[in-house]
Design a protein around this nucleic acid. Sequence first.
DNA 1: GGCTTAAGTTTACGCCGCTTAATAAACAGA
DNA 2: TCTGTTTATTAAGCGGCGTAAACTTAAGCC
Lengths: 187, 187
Amino acid sequence: MTKEINNSAYWREFEQNKLTHSAAHYLMAIDSLRDELGYARVTDVAEKLSVSRGAASTKIADLKKRRWVKEDPNRFLLLADDGEAIVSRVEHNFRILARFFGDILGISKDNAFGDACKMEHLMSAETGQRLIGLMHFIEGDDDRMKAFRAFMQSGDLHCADVEICPICEDECLAAATITDLAKEGQS
Amino acid sequence: MTKEINNSAYWREFEQNKLTHSAAHYLMAIDSLRDELGYARVTDVAEKLSVSRGAASTKIADLKKRRWVKEDPNRFLLLADDGEAIVSRVEHNFRILARFFGDILGISKDNAFGDACKMEHLMSAETGQRLIGLMHFIEGDDDRMKAFRAFMQSGDLHCADVEICPICEDECLAAATITDLAKEGQS
DNA sequence: GGCTTAAGTTTACGCCGCTTAATAAACAGA
DNA sequence: TCTGTTTATTAAGCGGCGTAAACTTAAGCC
């Protein structure tokens, strides 16, 4: 399996994603500003996303060119149909991931939201749907849910025998000491 | 929960990741080339990753500056200790995700590897560890595994009542018709 | 009218990561 | 030695995504 890791058919999909992380958040910002304020201007979007007005201006011009964003009769920003569709799908993915990480895996809020936010625009539709299934499976049955919680709290996930463990390949995955890659790198 | 989606504390972490997707794959390429050929040169890395030699040259120069890559006595490329640590952690994350998507969720090979590859350098250590726990929980018990497979095949994941469903917030997540965001965007 | 201020745009810049093309260095054969 | 190939590096260009600063436009106000 590990050979697949450098298969260029996979690794370059990352940069070929049509929808960038940043674009998704501009769209979501416009959407939520309209909910909160009733309107959205370049300045509001910039402030919401903590970017300069200049950056927001050019990025939003680009989103208009893509026809994901348009203007309402009062010249305020508005999501076009395609933009709305994107927003609902990204938010959908975010909700699934955040619930999965937070409620099922019991991950700290910071990592749960952080990971979900990074992956929301990358997860395939198939993965999202199956993840919902898994959540329903675990949460749908009280006893199972309890058993799962207990299991996760027991802590010791090391496999007894790497040769037999259905999860590990050559070394026990659970035994590996891991630290966060996000913080990796020099000063 | 959805409010968190535009929290700039989360959304800008994405670009602040010290380790880029691309850098991770350069490191893994060097590692696997040394396994396969016994050595790794700029040209080999370029070919393995399907990028130009120019791109490989500059990127590898950068990786040397970061002290993730060095040269062996014969001037072939070699991972430095930090580089090796990164590779083992990224591969670790990849294995966890690929197994989770493929073996547990039963996702098609393409999406399983594709999603795992995109997320491997983004997943927090905490998430990885808990994911292993979940896999052990499901796979560790034969009956549970069978029940899970049956459940996933039954197909109907819609919640009976959105108000009660522990997963959905305002609309049934499973009911949402989703398509792939990766392919989103105009021609 | 003339001044100030807010909003939006443009321009110059930097970083990342890629491409292509030019150049340099190293090596091997006629 | 001269020449052609391979390998590596460098340079120029482009797209994405930011910053900072300058500039335009449109109100609002006395």
